[in-house]
């Protein structure tokens, strides 16, 4: 396997360089997506399947779609675009940081970190997957704040909506050809994706998976439905969508406050921990799916059908 690892490392570096140099935004994005997929392979090799799932879903998939959307909106043709000159000060600074990191990585003696301690308390966290235990119980405060970061991303997009107040359905109007490939897939894939998304959420308690991964798959299904013209894009005018957007962090924070009655902020009593975590994760999955779908669809573009 050492040969495979070396090959993988070389490929990752090669693809990374290809993404930065050369001309054409579209080309750069394609290499960036390949880079994300290769990175997730590296995570698998490092025995971190949870990170691998997140990397491929969010790092490669979601970010790739967002970047492709941005390239589309910039509406420049690659042909008449001159190659970007290399920004030398930035290149030198980045190289120095990279060299420092490589040097440090070689010097570090691999330790176990807090893994033994986490395994020792795992039975008290309510879940069997140590990653989920850390995310949803040991460091739940971090995760609650991360879910607020996601909402911030949508709110940050809000001022970019035409007219400044985002109440129309998200994104441009979509018209798929009836009976075409897109509208066919738009009806075929979502039920499967729904099943996979919910499974990922459920599996997270004992195996790799969880709210972020499940939410990403659900978001993909939702975006496909919208693009195929099966359903209307979500809009902020509808209270139901706004509630779905905040449900995850709201339920999470409410459990945090309820914990004060049970012994402390964000504390789940052992017997109830699994139920509490699953409830929070279900709400989080919903919110994450809505956030990601809104990010991909973008702010409303009234009357601008493409």
């Amino acid at each position: 396997m050492a040969v495979f690892d070396l090959l993988l490392c070389a490929l990752i570096l090669l693809v990374a360089v290809a993404a930065i140099v050369g001309k054409g935004l579209f080309r750069a994005v394609v290499f960036f997506v390949i880079y994300g997929v290769l990175l997730s392979l590296a995570w698998v090799r490092l025995d971190a399947p949870d990170v691998a799932l997140a990397e491929v879903a969010i790092g490669a998939g979601l970010t790739g779609v967002l970047l492709l959307g941005a390239v589309g909106r910039l509406a420049r043709s690659d042909a008449d675009e001159p190659a970007e000159p290399i920004d030398w000060p930035v290149a030198v600074a980045a190289s120095v940081v990279a060299a420092l990191l490589v040097g440090a990585a070689i010097k570090i003696t691999p330790g176990t970190g807090l893994e033994p301690e986490v395994r020792a308390v795992l039975t008290r966290t309510g879940v069997e997957n140590p990653v989920t235990a850390i995310l949803m119980n040991l460091r739940a405060w971090d995760t609650l704040l991360e879910s607020m970061v996601l909402i911030t991303a949508v709110i940050g997009l809000w001022p970019l909506a035409q007219g400044g107040d985002w109440m129309e359905p998200a994104g441009p109007a979509h018209h798929a050809q009836p009976g075409g490939v897109l509208s066919g897939f738009g009806r075929l894939l979502p039920p499967v994706a729904l099943l996979v998304g919910v499974y990922l959420l459920w599996a997270g308690a004992s195996q790799p998976g969880g709210a972020f991964q499940g939410g990403t798959v659900l978001a993909a299904a939702g975006v496909l439905c919208v693009m195929a013209g099966v359903v209307r894009a979500p809009g902020m005018a509808a209270p139901a969508w706004r509630l779905a957007l905040v449900a995850g962090p709201a339920v999470f924070a409410a459990f945090g406050v309820a914990g004060l009655a049970w012994g402390g902020f964000l504390t789940f009593p052992e017997a109830w921990a699994k139920g509490a975590i699953l409830t929070i994760e279900m709400a989080l999955t919903l919110s994450i799916a809505v956030v990601l779908a809104l990010l991909v669809l973008g702010p409303p573009q009234a009357g601008e059908a493409r």
Binding site: L114, E117, V118, V121, N137, L138, R139, A140, W141, G256, G259, G263, G264, F265, L266, T267, F268
Partner: peptide, 9 residues
């Protein structure tokens, strides 16, 4: 938060 305390929490 969670009653774990550092370094776990």
């Amino acid at each position: 938060p969670g009653g774990w305390g550092a370094p776990l929490g």
